[in-house]
Nucleic acid binder design. Structure first.
Lengths: 211, 211
DNA sequence: AACTGTGAAGTTTTTCACAGCC
DNA sequence: GGCTGTGAAAAACTTCACAGTT
């Protein structure tokens, strides 16, 4: 009977899978399904059905015995759990090729993230409009981010500048950084950091290749 | 005494950390260091020193008691383990904003990956040169990839086309896919797949945010 | 009949702690 | 004194298997 939603601390590894579940539900939903099961989800994701049920059970009973899970209902619940039942403002630092591509990427808005400020240190970029954003100078970062109470940032600067940008972001009061630079950041313990490094992904695969 | 390098099967989770270690070593090296320790590496990465020692011990004794690890030596060893002591050819499918950004990204070549063919289905892109690559039609994918014996591919097409592109790649004989589309792929068990989804990274952080 | 939610069992992963070496 | 490599212990995570519900 006792379940430990609300207060207790859920393992990070469980939290890490929830966005994957949510993404799969979005897909099922767009394919026109209204109901699914832990078995069906598991098949699609290559995860055991027991694991999915156990993961979800941390937050309460979202399913119906004999039936499965109502997709829309479960999406709502997961969005609430992940705090993406609202829109988050995100700052983007670095407007080189990578930053530009991020600025153009349409996939953020659909899923609750809104780029609301862009920064670069290069004088020839500052003031220009890229993907509809006016590029602001790095010197404005602390003011803009703290005034607007922006909590998330993406770092798309060269590796050698990533740590100093991270330091600025910490000072500005950001709580989470998505780091595209291929380098590990050192940040205070209250900060969240996630890494996007395609080369790490590639290297994780070549290990399994024979030749 | 017995150590199980060569034959035995190393946990995936250990393999997954090796590229992170390699990246940290690259960094230390570029900062001019020649020697490091499991403690120093662990501090930088937020990983315990014992874990780093145990991970490395799967492949043999790379360190020296009392001294630590010679950085260049360890880099070489990890590159061999991960099979990145050579260059890998990679196919890129999808030349929209994202594909273009990937094509322009300089970070692959330094670390052993070379984009050697680009594909798109849009007739207005085929034949054009983007970032030095001539875009080829999707209909050529199987021929080009299998003839050149390309083993790795990156998918940068919209979510709704990602699965059919993956099917083509499997047919063409690719063994690993780095998928930038926000969707899970279903592939035969011998295939490796890694995902790049920045929104998943963001959602993994907002869970920990209060407001 | 089908499926969830969950204790208990089983497995994997991490940490401890120390012998051995530089 | 400082550090690695590693068995043994501890912790974390996953799977099993089934009672309970629709």
């Amino acid at each position: 009977m006792a379940s430990n939603h609300e207060n207790s601390n859920i393992p990070d590894i469980v939290i890490g899978r929830l966005p994957i579940y949510l993404r799969a539900l979005n897909r099922l939903s767009s394919e026109g399904y209204e109901i699914t099961s832990s078995h069906e989800l598991g098949q699609r994701l290559g995860i055991s059905s027991a694991q999915i049920r156990k993961d979800l059970s941390h937050f309460g009973g979202f399913g119906k015995q004999g039936t499965g899970y109502q997709i829309e209902f479960l999406q709502d619940k997961l969005r609430k759990v992940l705090h993406v039942d609202r829109e988050w403002e995100v700052a983007l630092v670095g407007m080189g090729d990578l930053g530009k591509a991020i600025a153009h990427y349409k996939g953020f808005a659909d899923r609750g993230f809104h780029i609301s400020a862009c920064f670069d240190s290069a004088p020839d970029k500052v003031g220009k409009k890229i993907a509809g954003f006016v590029v602001q100078p790095l010197s404005e970062l602390i003011t803009v981010v703290s005034e607007r109470n922006i909590q998330l940032a993406m770092i798309a600067v060269p590796a050698e500048h990533a740590q100093s940008v991270a330091n600025l972001l910490v000072e500005a009061g950001v709580h989470g950084i998505l780091n595209y630079a291929p380098i590990n950041l050192t940040v205070p313990p209250h900060m969240q950091v996630q890494y996007i490094d395609p080369v790490v992904g590639l290297q994780r695969m070549t290990y399994y290749f024979d030749e």
